[in-house]
Each structure stands twice: as C-alpha cells, then as structure tokens.
Nucleic acid binder design. Sequence first.
RNA 1: GCUCCCGUAGUUCAAUGGAUAGAACGCAAGCUUGCGGAGCUUGCGAUGCAGGUUCGAUUCCUGCCGGGAGCACCA
Length: 550
Amino acid sequence: MMKEKIKKLLDEALSGPADFTVEHPADPKNGDYYTNAALVLSKKTKENPRELAEKIISKIKKMPEIEKAEMAGAGFINFYLSRKFFADSIAEILEKKENFGKNKNLSGQKVMVEYTDPNPFKEFHIGHLMSNTIGESISRMVEACGAEVKRACYQGDVGMHAAKAIYGYLKQKDWRIAYAYGSQMYESDDKVKEEVLEINKKLYERSDDELNKIYDEGKRASLEKFEEIYKKLGTAFNYYFFESETAKLGKEIVEENLGNVFEKGEKGATVFHAEKFNPKLHTRVFINSEDLPTYEAKELGLAKLKYAKFPYDRSIVITGNEVDQYFQVLLEAMKRVFPELAQKTRHISHGMLRLPSGKMSSRTGDVITAESLLAIISEKVTKKVKETNRGGMTEEFITQVAVAALKYSILKQSIGSDIIYDFEKSISFEGDSGPYLQYSYARARSVAEKAEKEGVLMNLENIPENISEPEKLLYIFPEIVERSTREFEPHHVATYLIDLARAFNAYYSNTKIVGKEDPRSPFKVALTEAFSIVIKNGLRLLGIRAPEKM
RNA sequence: GCUCCCGUAGUUCAAUGGAUAGAACGCAAGCUUGCGGAGCUUGCGAUGCAGGUUCGAUUCCUGCCGGGAGCACCA
C-alpha cells in the first residue's frame, strides 16, 4: 500500500521514531496524502515546524510514484502522486480482481464470531437482523484479512420464553402466535402464570413425554425457519450452540470455583462480586436461588464449549449494547476462571434498533419481524422493477435488492450507536442506499458489455492527462478494509463505497466511455472494469450481493 | 442515587487531535443530441452550553443541560 510506503519514506527521513500520521487531505488541493510529521516533531525539538517540514522534504528519497512533496499550512507535508501511479493502480486492480483489498494482517489466526443469536420459539425480528448484518460483515472483513473464520450462533432454547410459547401453542395450535399469546396471558392471568411455571419445570426435567414432543417439534420448526432467513441474508453458520447444552456445563464451572471466585449471596444464590476487582462493575447472580444457572453461568459454559469445538486465537461476540456492563462483569469472572480464554475474547456491541414509538418488545407482539419487513421491501422492489420496465427479474434478484436496502441502512452508520428506525429510509433506493450501489455496479457492467460488443478492448496504453475522480478513490480501498477490520467498523467500507459510486456516476455522466474512434476509450473501459471490481469486493464485505443487471 | 453510552444542517448519518466540518433525505432551480434518470449539476442549511489542554478540538479533560441503557436471581 502506498500509505505504508510513504510512512517508510518518512521514517527514513526523520532519523528517529515519531508518532506521526499519514492521511488523505480533506481537500484534494492539498495532495493525495499529507503528514503532520513536522508538526509532531517540532514539539520535541522546539524547531519552527515550517522550517522542519522543508528540512524533512529535502531528505525524502525520490520515488516514481510520488510526483512531488511540498510544505503547506502550519507545517504539513503534502504528497502528490504521479499520473503513472494511478494508472498502475488500475492495472493492479484488474490483475488482483476479487483479491484486491485483501491483506494478510490476520493470516494464520483462527477466529470465531458469534452473532445473530435468535431464540427458538420467539420471533426473528429486526434486532436479530441487525446483529446478523453486522456479524456477517465483520466475519467477512476478518476473513479478508487472512483469518480462518468460524461463524457461531448461540440460541436460547430453554427457559421461560419456551414455556410461554408452549402454553400458547397448547391453547392456540399455531406457532406463529404462540409466544405472544402465552406471554400476554402470563402477564395478565395468575392461573396461567402457575401453569406456565409448571410447564417450565417439566421441560427442564424433561419429565412429560407429551410436552417434550411439542417442545421438540416447536424447536425444530423454529430453527428451520431461521435457516430460510439466513439463506436470504447470506449467512451460513458453522456451529450452533444451545443454552440447553451450556447450562449444565456452566453450573459445574461455577460450582468448581465456589469459594475462590464465586460466593454465596442472598437467598442461597451463587454470585460474583465484580466490584471487588473493578469498582465500576457490580455483583451478578450466576446460579439463582432455585439452583438454576443464569445466563452468566451459561456464558462460561459456552466459552468452554466453543474452544473445544474450535481452538480459536480470538473469540468475537456480537451483541446489543444493553448488555455492555453485564458483559464486563462476565469477562471479569472469566478472567479468573479461564484466564486464557478471557484474554482471547472480544465483545463488540451494537446500538439498539428503535422505533419512533419506543423500544420494541416481543412480549407484547410489538415487533417487526425480519420476514414481514423483507416482504414489504420486496414488494416495493418489484414495483420499481415494473416501472423501469426492464423485466425478467427473478425472485432471487428481488430478494438481493431488498436485503441490500436493509443491510446498507444498518451498516452505513457506526455500529455502536442506536439506529432510529425510519421505515421509509431503510427501504430507500436513492442516494445513500444499498440499491444505489447495486445500480452503479449494474450500470458499469452494462457499459463493459457494450464495450465488448463494439470491440473496444481495455488497455492502459493511452492514458488521459487528467486524473479522474474515481481513480483518486480506487487505490484507497485496501486502506479502508484494513481500518474497518482493525476498528470492527463496517461503516467505513459503506461510506467509502458511496463516495466511490458517486464519483463514478458523475464521471459516467460527463464522459463518454465507449467510443470506437476515441483513442482513450480502452483506458476508460479499464477504469470502468476496475470500478466494478472494487464495488463488488466492497459489497461482498458488507454481505450484499451485486447483481449484473437490475 | 451510582455506572456506562450518546448530543453535528429541518431529518438520518460521516469526519482514526489537523487545513474551508462531508453526505443523504427534504426544499428550490436545472440536465433531450451520449453507454441504464434507482442517475447527474447548482443552491439553502449544523458541532447542546461554559471552561481547560494544544501551534491546532466535533474529537481529549472538567462542570452543567438534554436523551438512552444498566445497576441480585430475565437474557
């Protein structure tokens, strides 16, 4: 990467280590890269930063990729890349194709990524969609950096929600409304509450054959349905973990460490006093007074189970940020129980999806399911396809565009902050949207197709003097991938792709690309090809498909 | 009450301590001779308040105001 080369040049010119940065200036007038090296160094040496900058420039080795380096402003050094560099970048993209953007930063590492985590018997709602979208994108980015990735999904198949759903099914004979019904009745009727608690107990003991049968069937149906959704979304999990497996293991782990890590608390519960180790943390229950393991204990069991399946170098767990502080407590406990695993575990949390009306709740049935949302967007896509009258669009294509709209609306912003869920915006096809990116790609493919028909073959022999805007962005892609993965922030890729697509669309609208008589046409076709490759590679990292036509 | 997260155009979001704070939607005005108008061009418009650190602060620190989440047997 050019960025690394410039850093190296500076390291040599500075004759000493310094904490400087090399970045792209906001204003292209200030070159393709700039560094604040002179400003940083002048703090230590007390020299005039502008004079120091000049001194550094005079020591920088000449390179064919760099046209010139100049001092500017308070003491910045701006680098202007040569025409040849940009043309060579296009050649590199055309050569590397789907591998352009990848790096080896994590090569040799085994990484397990856990995400989505829907609960059987309950709805797969847009919150799960959010977790899935982010988790899938992070998985792909980590893969692009050379790691071996295993995708894991952890599902709560035991507990009160299952009992409520089964009660609901017994009364309504319909799994679609079973949970909402059971949950509502549980809240409003004390007799039902008792019945549900009884069901829960029997399920836990697996003592009632009839209930077991219903339970197994409900779980199977739920999981089957999740698979349909994963297929549409483009996720394929390697491992599925269930709370029914982690509960016993987790309980044992806690009991083994009773006295040294865990203590007996109120009403006989087994607790972990995290505040003893970190005053910002709090006490949490790991085994409750009914002698049942809580989520916390199960999570310890899960860590052990995961490592047994796949001895990872890193374990990434993606959840909503409502469990942030709870997860810190858990990690504090894990540090003492499994220090080596705790060290490898990284919790990444995303914001919550909020409706204008407030928080979603599956207990009241006030949720938007992934299924219904996709259906609504698909309908809108279908309508749009009919309007544009291109025809011949399959159901698979409709789903690809609908998923793009949805995923992009999640991935375009930093994952940590909440998403105010604006229904219209999330299904938008214009401007800052997934379908805009897909459209830009499809149009570029269409241009390439025309070039082929007219016999214009791409080459990089006749290079235009002016450096086009798309060229100024294309070579940056690997830097974006590197940073996005390092920060676990897919939105850097998303915003970059929008910038790139916009640059290409503007270029497209004031430049004729394919022209038999135009000696520059082969170059412009090559540029179009390079654009297609980068957009497609970028979309792949976001978990979005790039249809050839739309 | 304590802990954590967040306050940027009318709205939804960007900006890894850097140069004139970027987009999108919306609004206003345009784009037939040329490959796909889900597009392109132009305009209007913002850092909650008060201090501090720094050559330089949307970014770091302190206080205040406002919003969200968590704080013992749900996950």
